[in-house]
Simulated assay, not measured.
Amino acid sequence: MSGFSKKVLVALIAFAVLTMSASQVLAAKEVRFASVSWTGVTTKTELAVRILRSLGYEASNTMVSVPIAFKALDTGEADIFLGNWMPTQATMANKYFDKGTIEPLVASMPGAKYTLAVPTYAYEGGLQHFKDIAKYADKLGNKIYGIEEGNDGNQIIQSMIDKDMFGLGDFQLIPSSEAGMLSQVQSFTKDERWIVFLGWAPHHMNEMIDMKYLDGSTSETFGKNDGTATVYTIVRDGFVEENKNVAKFLKNLIFPISMMNQIMTTLHEKDGLKPVDAGLDWVKAHPEVYKGWLEGVTTISGEPALPAFEQYLETVN
């Protein structure tokens, strides 16, 4: 090989290495969240996106249904999902965990609640347990109200009906949006009509509706502990190894139940306020929380994360 040819070959190799390095840097800068249209998950995800953007990352959020969120992580089309409610999503999640394409990263919100609920007047009237629902079929119109189609909670309710668990074989699941379901519940409570619906905490429904959660959940339904749940942050396989700084941030990103209840109540009281704005207002008032989130985290260029995020907060009205 001539000297000229060797120089050309060396130049081509150097160019290829530089191109690969550049593409790796770009890939490392991109952080893709999948979320669902639940107020809490939206708020948490948009907060995480804003924080990462302040650190120099190209963070994005795509809103989909729960099954699609899992599928997006499975296929590598998304990196992170902050709404893995366990054990209620176990049937949906475990197949991906077992497959190895998705991994749980951290319990980001322990002590949550996710199960069937009723207005307090219905509870005091005798509807206190899953086995009581069928007793009051006439009062309930043989209906149980859920949220969006394909949601894991809806799937559990439908399975209970299909298997005639607790004598619910003649009942019908009424799917709706989160807002639509809550509007229906509030409409019923005005006249003290009886209704069974999918409830959860944290959520402003616990403040705006005088409600009680039913006992009787099993491992086949919403979990053995009467619907007490833990929310996990989950990531696609390989994400932690490729993005150690972001993974450190995500492990720190723990959301107290009280924080989310307060944010959701503010959103309910202030019509038109966006979830991310309510979240940022709360974060600005609680620096001890965001300082914990950013402990040991850096910007994309390796500088301490805290000053960069606080500089961003100064620009937020």
Rank of each mutant, 00 (worst) to 15 (best):
I102S: 04
A59R: 01
T265Q: 06
G180R: 08
T45D: 05
T91A: 14
P256C: 09
A72L: 14
H129N: 15
T120N: 15
G216M: 09
R32A: 03
E46H: 05
V196N: 01
L52H: 04
S2G: 15
F130I: 06
E288W: 03
A22Q: 04
Q155S: 11
E46K: 11
G76P: 07
F222S: 01
L73H: 01
N252T: 07
S217E: 09
I254N: 01
T233M: 01
G56D: 02
G150T: 13
I300P: 00
L55W: 03
G76Y: 05
I257V: 15
P275T: 06
N84E: 11
L26M: 08
F33Y: 12
S159H: 08
V31N: 00
L82T: 06
K270E: 15
K95Q: 13
H204W: 07
E30W: 00
E58K: 15
A308R: 00
S60R: 13
S35A: 09
F249N: 01
M165I: 06
K143D: 11
A28T: 10
I144C: 00
G199K: 01
Y213M: 14
T266H: 06
F33Q: 01
G216K: 09
N84D: 14
Q89E: 14
K274W: 03
I254A: 01
F255Y: 15
A134H: 08
D210W: 11
S60Y: 05
A72Q: 11
E241F: 08
F239Y: 06
L47E: 04
R193Q: 14
S35V: 06
L267Q: 01
A34W: 00
S2W: 10
M109P: 03
G111R: 14
L294A: 00
S187C: 03
A308I: 02
N317D: 14
V41P: 00
Y57F: 11
A34I: 08
Y290Q: 02
P175G: 05
V235S: 02
G223E: 04
V283R: 00
Y232R: 11
S2P: 09
F33C: 04
W85N: 09
L250C: 14
D191W: 14
V297S: 05
F309W: 07
A48P: 07
M264A: 13
H129E: 15
F309M: 04
S176Y: 11
Q186N: 10
G216F: 03
